[in-house]
Every structure is written in structure tokens, then in C-alpha cells.
């Protein structure tokens, strides 16, 4: 029964992705920016412009362009980006690890802070601690993330000097560690270069911190909600009656039960972060997928936009599926 449901869900994945490609393609064709501009610039003579148009196949009927593109994707070729002059797959292999690294550190930070805060708030429901946690978490979610980023740079970089400035690594480490995974911290560790590792981590601190602060509200809110539901259940009352210590009840019993729904919440937040945070990336000069997508879009570099959207969509769908699966298989209450 459960497997059958899973099978049905799996079938929907390609359909969703196809829909994604179709919508992206249509948007790309409606955007009133001439894709040829990105290749030849504003000043090229007309014949160069027209030749570029032919090379892109833009003279063909829309439906033919679309089918060509689908066939091309199906063979694993995402085409070439005109902005970077590289194959889109190669670009994604460079930009995605940066986003991945940022999102991963951010989600770790957010859960490490958000979950305990949420649980605490639930335990002290209605008290001043609950209210302060709520205020703190919501504060992070009430400012545009680019303002948060600028303020953070201003404070931690310019005024206090605790954190390095924008960018992924210090100048001294630029191009010094072999790229294996593209995730700088991991590459540095693989190379056994501690200096580079700490440098990369230090550069991550601010953007990841900002993203984490921004995601905190949702995570803490959900943790609080799950915990409250759990604390009002019968077995907690029983356990209290038996005289078990409150700490034990909360962390040993209740927390174990909310772990699974909490993980699904975290996975979904993570999926959101992996889309690439354009605004954070811009402020911190972080060469991630969000920036890549935005720049490509505003230059009508459609191969890049389609490729990157597809990858982001795929990740989103897969993580969703994973969360779904986790929930179905592990949560004792769903059974």
C-alpha cells in the first residue's frame, strides 16, 4: 500500500519537471530582452546580429525550438551559456557547490538555534521566554535580507572586524586549493590545508548567519507547535504523574516524537535555501546559483536559465519526495 503510493509519487516527478521546463521556456520567450544582445552586444552591426540569431535557432518556430531543447536535455546536454562561454553543466558544477555550501551551513546554524529555542518556547508557553523567543525569531524574518546582510557587513566586518568581507575566500587562498568537489571547506580539508579551511569557514559565517537568522522564525515556530502538541498528550501527563523529571520528559520522550516532523520541516526549508538566495549572494559577492540564474535571466541567456531552473526544480522535487517518504515511513503517528 505504502509502496504503491510511493510509486505513484515517483511517476509525477518527470511530469513536474516537464512542466517546469515548459513554463521556463515560455517565460524565456516572452521576456522582452533580445538574447542576441548578450552575445554580440549593443554595438554590433546588423549582419552579426542576424547571424547570431540564426546560430541560436531563434528564427525557427517556437514549438520546434522547444522540442529541440527537450531532446537536447534528454541527452544530458544543457547547451552552452552565452554569458560565461562555458557549457551550462560546467557552470552549474561551479555555482551550485557555492550555493550548496551556503545553504548547508545556514540550515545547520538555523536548526542548532531554532529547534532548541522552539522547544524552550513551548515549555515556557506564554511566559516571557516564549515571547522573547518569538520576538527574536520574527525580527529575523521582518527585515529584507539585503538590509540584514548590509547591516551585518557594517557591524561584523567594518566596525568590529570579526568576520572577513564579501567573497568566498581570502585573496591569499584564491586559486590555491585544488577544486575537487567545489565545496571550498571540503576541498580544503581534502587537501589537508587548515588555513584554507578556516578561511573558507570564516567567509561563510556572515552570509550563512544572515540566511539562518532569516529562516529561524519558521523553524522555531514549527518546533514550538510540535512540542506543544506533544506536551499536551496523554503519555506526557502520565509520565509527569509518575514523577519523571521534566527535562527527561521533554528531551527523552517528547523530542523523540517530534523529531521526524521536525526533520521534514528542516528538509523543506533546506530545499528553499538551495534555490540560491539571490539577494544574499549579491550583497556578499557569493558566486552562487541564485546570482547565476538572475544574471542569465536578465540577459536572456536561456540555456543557462533553463538548465539552472531544471536543476533547482529537480533538487526541490527530490527533497520533497524525501521528506514525504521520511514522514510516511518513520512517523509513528501517521501509521
Amino acid at each position: 500500500m505504502r509502496l504503491k503510493a510511493l510509486g505513484a509519487t515517483l511517476v509525477t516527478v518527470p511530469i513536474t519537471l516537464f512542466g517546469l521546463v515548459l513554463v521556463t521556456f515560455l517565460i524565456g520567450r516572452v521576456v522582452p530582452i533580445d538574447p542576441v544582445l548578450a552575445i554580440v552586444g549593443d554595438r554590433a552591426p546588423q549582419e552579426v546580429v542576424e547571424r547570431a540569431r540564426l546560430e541560436l535557432g531563434l528564427d525557427r518556430p517556437l514549438i520546434e525550438q522547444f522540442l529541440r531543447f527537450v531532446v537536447q536535455i534528454a541527452s544530458g546536454d544543457l547547451g552552452r551559456s552565452v554569458m560565461t562561454a562555458n557549457p551550462v553543466t560546467q557552470d552549474i558544477a561551479r555555482f551550485f557547490p557555492a550555493t550548496f555550501e551556503l545553504a548547508t551551513v545556514a540550515i545547520i546554524l538555523a536548526s542548532l538555534v531554532g529547534v532548541p529555542l522552539g522547544v524552550l518556547a513551548a515549555v515556557r508557553q506564554g511566559g516571557w521566554l516564549d515571547q522573547s523567543v518569538r520576538l527574536f525569531c520574527l525580527a529575523g524574518h521582518s527585515l529584507p535580507v539585503f538590509v540584514l546582510g548590509l547591516l551585518s557587513l557594517l557591524l561584523f566586518y567594518a566596525k568590529l572586524g570579526w568576520a572577513p568581507g564579501p567573497g568566498r575566500q581570502g585573496i591569499a587562498y584564491e586559486d590555491m586549493v585544488d577544486v575537487r568537489t567545489g565545496v571550498l571547506t571540503v576541498d580544503a580539508l581534502l587537501a589537508g590545508d587548515w588555513g584554507a579551511f578556516w578561511d573558507a569557514l570564516a567567509h561563510l559565517a556572515q552570509p550563512a548567519g544572515v540566511l539562518a537568522f532569516f529562516s529561524l522564525a519558521y523553524i522555531a515556530r514549527m518546533a514550538r507547535a510540535f512540542m506543544l502538541a506533544e506536551l499536551s498528550s496523554e503519555y506526557v501527563t502520565t509520565a509527569r504523574a509518575k514523577g519523571l523529571s521534566e527535562t527527561r520528559i521533554i528531551w527523552r520522550h517528547a523530542f523523540r516524537n517530534i523529531a521526524v516532523p521536525l526533520v521534514t520541516v528542516l528538509v523543506l526549508t533546506y530545499a528553499g535555501l538551495l534555490e540560491g538566495a539571490v539577494l544574499t549572494e549579491t550583497i556578499f559577492s557569493w558566486p552562487g546559483l541564485g546570482q547565476y540564474l538572475t544574471v542569465s535571466l536578465l540577459n536572456a541567456d536561456m540555456n543557462a536559465v533553463l538548465g539552472a531552473t531544471l536543476v533547482v526544480g529537480l533538487i526541490y522535487v527530490v527533497l520533497n519526495l524525501f521528506a514525504d517518504l521520511l514522514y510516511r515511513l518513520l512517523d509513528p503517528r501517521v501509521r
Binding site: L17, G19, I27, L297, V305, T309, G313, Y316
Partner: peptide, 16 residues
């Protein structure tokens, strides 16, 4: 499909 879309990108593309 709309959920799987990177949100800001969808909005951006639409506005553009």
C-alpha cells in the same frame, strides 16, 4: 510545477 520553481526567479521572470 510552481512550487518547484525558484520563487524569486519566477517573480523576476514574470516582471521582466
Amino acid at each position: 510545477v510552481f512550487l518547484a520553481f525558484p520563487r524569486l526567479i519566477l517573480a523576476l521572470a514574470f516582471v521582466a
